[in-house]
Design a binder for these strands. Structure first.
Lengths: 219, 219
DNA sequence: ACTATATTCAATTGATCGCTTGAATACTAG
DNA sequence: CTAGTATTCAAGCGATCAATTGAATATAGT
């Protein structure tokens, strides 16, 4: 294979990315995810001018994200396919989960960066064996059953507020979930602090814990 | 919340889109989907300067797509989470399905090879457990060591022709590499077929396999 | 043919992006 | 402390992008 076709593929994917780099275009895609619409309708809904909307739509079409159908004077745009819906969904998950959500939680509940300092796995192991901390697994019960940190208590994040009294108030609670960027433990720490308990996150989650060869229980 | 929360969400999604609007950043993400890497390693792999690579990585971090871990002088970057793998995968799917340019590239470089139906992950899992297929990992040895499909044999693509006799001829060989746009498995299938073995590609690669929670081995 | 409607095209301006260069910072090893 | 390594920062330049404006094209109704 002589030339590097990967480069060209990345460039093409980057064009799709570029199509997603404008908030107006994202909004257009969200609107088109509901049903096909005319240019002027989209312009009215987004508040942009018709010409501007038209240009954005053409960029989206060039990137292969939308397609157009002409009827009388009007042009109806629609999403090019289900893959685009999946892409929007994936984008939403990443965007909301990692940028807005963490940012919101951090600003809302956790003043100061130091307050967020996670506990390392080795620290936790030592302190848990001394009985100094409560280890809290906030994942769903079935994931807990498949394997959890030795001695950890399982209270899924959704039930945490109701079952607060199961946690001893005098010990610090170290919460963990699926991994370093799983949000459940952030929310758990936020909630516990709000309720007056001392709480921190485990630096990593279950996969990393297991991978490090640290003690795991099942059931 | 502020005046128009929807606008803010679109804006934050557009930031993620902007992060995906550069071919270098896409390539960085694909590389990081394999495993965490240092800045200078990524610079060498992409061919960009270290400073430029660093700046791109910071944009990715700002968008919440990657995170960094410092060790000694080095900074190791990795994907922020599984959602990012899903996003990359969705991006690739859109590209594959709808972008004419990618279609052209695929036709240009992969004629005759891409016509072969790929094997899905679940199909492979079932057939591998029955001993019906040989699973072949054609990535470099170090990537294989960092994690590979359970039971897979590792023969890097460069050595495949010399080490053909290591593969049983009566079983079908299912080859995989880094992901849907990694070309090594295409080449592997082409070579194996030329040599008279039955062979197909795995539909996706290692990152998707891992994300699906399918069995992975290390070492 | 004439007019109204819907969309696209073309040209412009200000802003942002990407890349390079050279320096600054952070950490390690001796 | 000094030298070496890894990364980031800051400034600058050319290219690209977003939005506006005004005109051009296409279609339908009269």
């Amino acid at each position: 294979m002589s030339i590097n076709p990967k480069r060209e593929i990345f460039a093409s994917l980057a064009k799709v990315g570029t199509a997603l780099s404008s908030s107006i275009r994202i909004e257009l895609l969200e609107l088109l995810a509901q049903r096909e619409r005319r240019v002027d309708q989209l312009a009215a809904l987004t508040g942009a001018t018709v010409a501007n909307t038209s240009q954005h739509l053409q960029k989206l079409r060039q990137a292969g994200l939308v397609s157009a159908r002409k009827e009388a004077q009007s042009v109806f745009y629609r999403l090019a396919g289900d893959e685009v819906v999946a892409l929007l969904s994936a984008l939403g998950r990443v965007g909301e989960a990692y940028v807005a959500e963490i940012d919101r939680i951090v600003r809302l509940y956790l003043a100061g960066v130091d307050a967020l300092e996670p506990v390392s796995a080795t620290q936790l192991l030592v302190r848990a064996r001394k009985g100094l901390v409560t280890v809290l697994d906030v994942r769903p019960a079935e994931e807990y059953a498949a394997g959890h940190v030795q001695g950890a208590v399982n209270i899924p994040i959704a039930e945490l507020e109701k079952r607060l009294k199961e946690l001893p108030r005098r010990k610090e609670v170290v919460a963990y979930c699926r991994g370093p960027y799983c949000l459940m433990s952030y929310n758990a720490v936020a909630l516990l602090r709000k309720k007056g308990l001392r709480s921190r996150r485990l630096q990593d989650g279950m996969p990393e814990w297991r991978m490090a060869g640290l003690p795991v229980e099942q059931g």
